[in-house]
Amino acid sequence: MQVNRIAAPLKLLTIAFKTGRVTKKYPFGPPLITEAFRGAISIDPAKCWGCGACVLVCPPNALDIIFEKEKIVIEYFKGRCIFCGMCADTCPANAITVTKEFELAATNLEDLKEDVVHRVSKCAVCGKPFAPAAELRDVMKMHPITEEYANICPDCRRKRTARAFGMRFGASI
């Protein structure tokens, strides 16, 4: 019995020596991050349209879209983000990429916010701002719509179509 009492800790010692040092040297060395790890997202302002598809799909509303008079702002709040990557999947312009950034600790909440500011283009007829300029630019690239047709707001376009129909059927508008 007494031999066992001495031998049991010795067994542990051999296991410990065989395993060696397992501690990661993280702040002084590389972090333990795998290929599949998802960190904070980054929005590429050169590609972003400002369509707001990411805002609709975000589960915790970390992405928010704010309509102001002359600009549309997409706000990304890293503090509430659950790093699911659904916005990167849905983005029609592939502007959102999932990075491996995880060192996001901040002493101020404002430091965790990221804004993407879009200019709003105005209607050529009534002058009312109606859509982000980047979205119009890229839609015109993708589809053969003339610029005269695309830069008119939905209301004015409806009126114009109605007028065209009316003229065809002989109404005097």
Partner: peptide, 23 residues
């Protein structure tokens, strides 16, 4: 890392970013 930021060992990396879209 957060604990080290709290105690002042390291400086925080993130700050508020405002990106403007040129179009």
């Amino acid at each position: 890392y957060g604990l080290l930021v709290a105690l002042g060992y390291v400086k925080q990396k993130v700050s508020k970013v405002v990106k403007t879209v040129e179009s």
